[in-house]
Computed example of a mutant assay.
Amino acid sequence: MKNIFEASVTNEIIGRINQLSPESKAIWGKMSVAQMLAHCCVTYEMIYDETHPKAGFFKTLIMKLFVKNIVVGPKPYKKNSPTAPAFVIKDQRNFQTEKKRLIDYLNKTQELGGTYFDGKTSNSFGNLTESEWNIMFYKHLDHHLSQFAV
């Protein structure tokens, strides 16, 4: 798994994002490209903006037992996998706005570095290691950028 905390990897991801256009079409799934960018921003909103509530004890336990290994494990996501309700983007979004937000979040994450995230609490999974944060960040972005053929 590539390390999103390395500048070269962050720059590679940003380069892939910059290959997208408002007319980019998905190979699978129902999201527009702007919705996909907004969807990818949700992870970072949960960390930096605290706009999403933390899961309660019972939900966190269920998420740890049944979902965590899918999200932070090395296996790629399957196409058309279900997502958590907070990640569902139903309304139309502005491509340029969402693209800028995602790139800004990526730059902030890379600047903070992996040690900032080591032991940091995820809204859904409790404390994660630096490696688990990296996998979650990189795998999710790679999955959706591949969805749009970049």
Rank of each mutant, 00 (worst) to 15 (best):
E6C: 09
A7T: 14
A7E: 15
A7C: 09
S8K: 06
V9N: 05
V9H: 07
T10G: 06
N11V: 00
E12M: 08
E12C: 03
I13R: 05
I13C: 06
I13N: 00
I14G: 07
I14Y: 03
I14P: 02
G15D: 01
R16H: 08
I17N: 12
S21I: 03
P22N: 04
P22G: 01
E23I: 07
E23L: 14
E23F: 00
I27A: 15
I27T: 14
I27K: 12
W28P: 04
W28I: 06
K30P: 11
K30T: 08
S32A: 06
S32M: 07
V33E: 00
V33C: 09
A34D: 11
A34N: 07
M36Q: 08
M36I: 00
M36F: 06
M36Y: 06
L37G: 02
A38E: 13
A38W: 01
C41A: 12
C41Y: 01
V42A: 02
T43F: 08
Y44G: 03
Y44N: 09
E45W: 05
E45F: 05
M46E: 15
Y48A: 08
D49Q: 14
D49T: 02
D49P: 06
E50I: 15
E50M: 10
T51P: 13
T51R: 15
K54T: 11
A55S: 06
A55F: 01
G56I: 14
